[in-house]
């Protein structure tokens, strides 16, 4: 078994926010905490693309590296989890994370009102007894222990968001790449095979 990963197919994402509410639903995530968000680029003009982002469960997670109380751990399947009992709400992981995954419940004061950090758990719960009320209250559902995958991906309206073993996810995406063929339909095709440096190179050599 490889590591668990998310992949959001930007060609399919329609910014429906199904992943966002599925997560809220499954874990009773309160207002103000956004474990998953959809980010849209070029909103309203041709070239508009959306991607759903939550915790990337990095191999070398910056959050884990900087935490002063070392409350993070990484499971064998690559899921990055943390112990809320150890978390002091300092917010350093929030500084470190390039994706904005750590969330803090809104306080009523203007400053310094962070509570315990909360973030996407890949629906793998946390360091409490599996399936217990305590685990649910602190971290949400543990779907992995039930043989299920994160609800955000399972409920995605266009199956843009994929989650699971990285090899399996890659296989699913690969099939779509093959079907789409070449050109703009294939995500990244231009970057790899057509745009930028390569295009200029070819022009210089007298090719079209």
């Amino acid at each position: 078994m490889g590591r668990m990963k998310f992949l959001c197919d930007a060609e399919r994402c329609i910014e429906c926010n199904g992943c966002v509410t599925a997560c809220k639903n499954e874990h009773e995530v309160p207002w103000g905490v956004n474990r998953r968000r959809v980010v849209t680029m070029n909103d309203g003009v041709p070239g508009e693309r959306s991607i759903s982002v939550a915790c990337m469960h990095c191999s070398d997670a910056p959050c884990m590296a900087v935490c002063p109380t070392d409350c993070f751990y990484k499971t064998e399947d690559g899921v990055v989890l943390h112990d809320k009992d150890k978390c002091i709400g300092c917010g350093y992981c929030f500084f470190a994370c390039p994706f904005g995954a750590p969330q803090f419940p809104n306080g009523q004061a203007a400053f310094g009102a962070r509570g315990k950090m909360d973030k996407c758990t890949f629906c793998a719960g946390g360091p409490e007894e599996t399936g217990s009320q305590a685990e649910y209250d602190k971290y949400g559902s543990n779907r992995l222990a039930q043989g299920k995958l994160p609800l955000c991906a399972e409920m995605c309206s266009t199956k843009a968001l994929l989650a699971g073993d990285a090899n399996v996810v890659a296989d699913i995406f690969r099939e779509r790449v093959l079907r789409r063929g070449t050109g703009a339909e294939v995500w990244g095709w231009d970057a790899a095979y057509g745009g930028g440096e390569q295009k200029r190179e070819r022009k210089r050599e007298g090719q079209s």
């Binding site: 199904g18 992943c19 509410t21 599925a22 609800l151 409920m155 309206s157 199956k159």
Partner: peptide, 12 residues
């Protein structure tokens, strides 16, 4: 096929 939009995923 299991899919939902924001509203369908929030039915509960």
């Amino acid at each position: 096929l299991g899919a939902h939009c924001a509203k369908g995923a929030a039915l509960r």
